[in-house]
Simulated scan of single mutants.
Amino acid sequence: MIRHLVLFKLNDGVGHDEPRVRDGVRAFQELPGRISDVRSWEFARNVTDRPIAYDYAINCTVDDQQALVRYLEHPAHQAGVAQWQAFATWVIADYEI
């Protein structure tokens, strides 16, 4: 099993209530229903407001490395990534559990 973690930081001046952010959130909320390789899924906005905090997080699992590649290359995932590139940066970690 592979855990895929992503932490998103909105770019300076970008607010959570902007339509493009709301659309990006919706795109990622829909991923588990669109990508069959997803085994577990959590996507949420951070509840703390510390200077080092990121704004959103994804915590999901897939069966193996091949499933991770299929997830990452899936058109729905790619479309969501394209949206987020316009207003955020992120860091990731993928590891075996």
Score class of each variant (00 low, 15 high):
residue 29 Q to A: 05
residue 68 L to F: 13
residue 35 I to E: 13
residue 24 G to C: 01
residue 45 R to C: 09
residue 75 P to C: 00
residue 61 T to P: 15
residue 31 L to N: 07
residue 70 R to E: 10
residue 67 A to H: 02
residue 76 A to M: 09
residue 33 G to F: 02
residue 9 K to E: 13
residue 72 L to D: 15
residue 29 Q to N: 09
residue 79 A to V: 08
residue 28 F to Q: 08
residue 81 V to W: 06
residue 40 S to Y: 01
residue 85 Q to V: 15
residue 76 A to C: 10
residue 65 Q to L: 11
residue 77 H to P: 09
residue 9 K to H: 09
residue 9 K to V: 11
residue 40 S to D: 12
residue 41 W to G: 05
residue 38 V to Q: 06
residue 83 Q to G: 01
residue 39 R to N: 14
residue 38 V to C: 05
residue 29 Q to F: 01
residue 45 R to F: 07
residue 47 V to R: 10
residue 14 V to H: 03
residue 67 A to N: 03
residue 40 S to T: 15
residue 41 W to F: 12
residue 50 R to P: 04
residue 48 T to E: 12
residue 67 A to Y: 04
residue 50 R to K: 12
residue 36 S to Q: 14
residue 32 P to S: 05
residue 81 V to S: 04
residue 36 S to R: 14
residue 68 L to G: 06
residue 32 P to D: 05
residue 55 D to G: 07
residue 63 D to T: 10
residue 69 V to R: 12
residue 71 Y to S: 08
residue 39 R to M: 14
residue 69 V to N: 13
residue 79 A to R: 13
residue 10 L to K: 12
residue 49 D to Q: 06
residue 62 V to I: 04
residue 79 A to T: 13
residue 14 V to G: 10
residue 25 V to L: 10
residue 26 R to Y: 09
residue 51 P to F: 04
residue 77 H to I: 01
residue 59 N to W: 12
residue 63 D to Q: 12
residue 41 W to A: 08
residue 14 V to I: 09
residue 63 D to I: 03
residue 29 Q to G: 02
residue 10 L to E: 08
residue 38 V to P: 06
residue 88 A to V: 07
residue 71 Y to N: 01
residue 30 E to K: 00
residue 15 G to D: 05
residue 18 E to F: 01
residue 72 L to A: 15
residue 37 D to R: 14
residue 45 R to Q: 13
residue 13 G to R: 01
residue 53 A to L: 03
